[in-house]
Structure formats: structure tokens, C-alpha cells
């Protein structure tokens, strides 16, 4: 009995700690907010991440800023981004922008391009609607 206890007790403790971490960290492991989640928030100076698809036809180059709409299948948010976007930035691609939400416009200075798991030799084969609804 004591022989098994030496293995069982540490194993139980490890599993309990892992379970605790998983349950409690799940919220902070969420990397970005969806447009709907951002819309629900009041405007503030809090830094947020917003993720979604760059709405086709919405990109307007304003010199030092770029404005566009980040959408998912529920709703969309207007983004004004200051700085140079990454090279893959284009209409229809996924992005995660980081900045503040003032209640009407999302102002960002950091942009990451979120490419997906599709690999196609030809543009036409891309399923551009695939991630228009947010995953998890």
C-alpha cells in the first residue's frame, strides 16, 4: 500500500494543479476579443486585442494611418491603425490588432496577420469565408 502511495499522491497533486491552472487560465489564454466582445465594452484606455477578418473593400490608406473594418459573421468594428501593416496585410485576411477602444473606433498601433491553415497554389481555391465566423 505504501509503495503505491508514493506514486499516487504526487500524481493526484500534479493532476489537481494542472486542472486548476487549466480552468483558471482559460480566460487569459484567449488571445483576442471578437468584434462582438469589443462592441459590448464601454470605451476606455484599457489595451485590448481585437481579431477578425479585414472586410473586403473597407481598407482606406490615409498616409501614416490605415483604416479598415474588422468583421466576423456577427458584427464589425472600425479600426484606425497607425504604422506600417505587416506585408501579408490585405482585404479578406485575418488580423489581430492591439490598441484601445473608445466606444466607436478601435485605435491600434500593433497589428499581427493571422493566416490560416489553408495552402493553395491558386487564389481561387481559397475558402475566404472559412474564418469569417470566429473560431473557438
Amino acid at each position: 500500500m505504501r509503495r503505491y502511495a508514493r506514486f499516487v499522491i504526487p500524481a493526484v497533486v500534479i493532476i489537481a494543479v494542472l486542472a486548476f491552472l487549466l480552468v483558471n487560465l482559460s480566460a487569459s489564454l484567449v488571445y483576442y476579443n471578437t468584434p462582438a466582445e469589443v462592441q459590448e465594452r464601454p470605451g476606455s484606455n484599457e489595451r485590448l486585442r481585437l481579431g477578425g477578418r479585414v472586410a473586403p473593400g473597407s481598407v482606406v490608406d490615409g498616409g501614416t494611418t490605415v483604416s479598415f473594418t474588422v468583421e466576423d459573421c456577427d458584427t464589425d468594428v472600425t479600426v484606425i491603425h497607425t504604422g506600417v501593416p505587416p506585408q501579408l496585410f490585405q482585404e479578406g485576411i485575418g488580423v489581430v490588432v492591439e490598441g484601445t477602444w473608445d466606444g466607436t473606433v478601435f485605435e491600434s498601433e500593433t497589428m499581427l496577420v493571422k493566416h490560416d491553415e489553408q495552402y493553395r497554389s491558386d487564389d481561387e481555391h481559397y475558402d475566404t469565408e472559412r474564418h469569417s465566423c470566429s473560431d473557438p
Binding site: 489564454l29 490560416d116 491553415e117 489553408q118 473557438p136
Partner: peptide
């Protein structure tokens, strides 16, 4: 990548749904 909303893309292989790559790839 499936459990939490993240930046990394979801798997192209080793996943339940069909493969999303052109045949030569």
C-alpha cells in the same frame, strides 16, 4: 489551437475535418 482562441493557425493535417491543402503540397 483548437481549445483556445489564438494566433497560430489550426492544424492542416492530424485533424478531424478534411485536409485544406492542394494535392502537390
Amino acid at each position: 489551437v483548437v481549445l483556445w482562441r489564438g494566433l497560430h493557425q489550426t492544424p492542416s493535417l492530424l485533424k478531424p475535418a478534411s485536409v485544406d491543402m492542394d494535392t502537390p503540397m
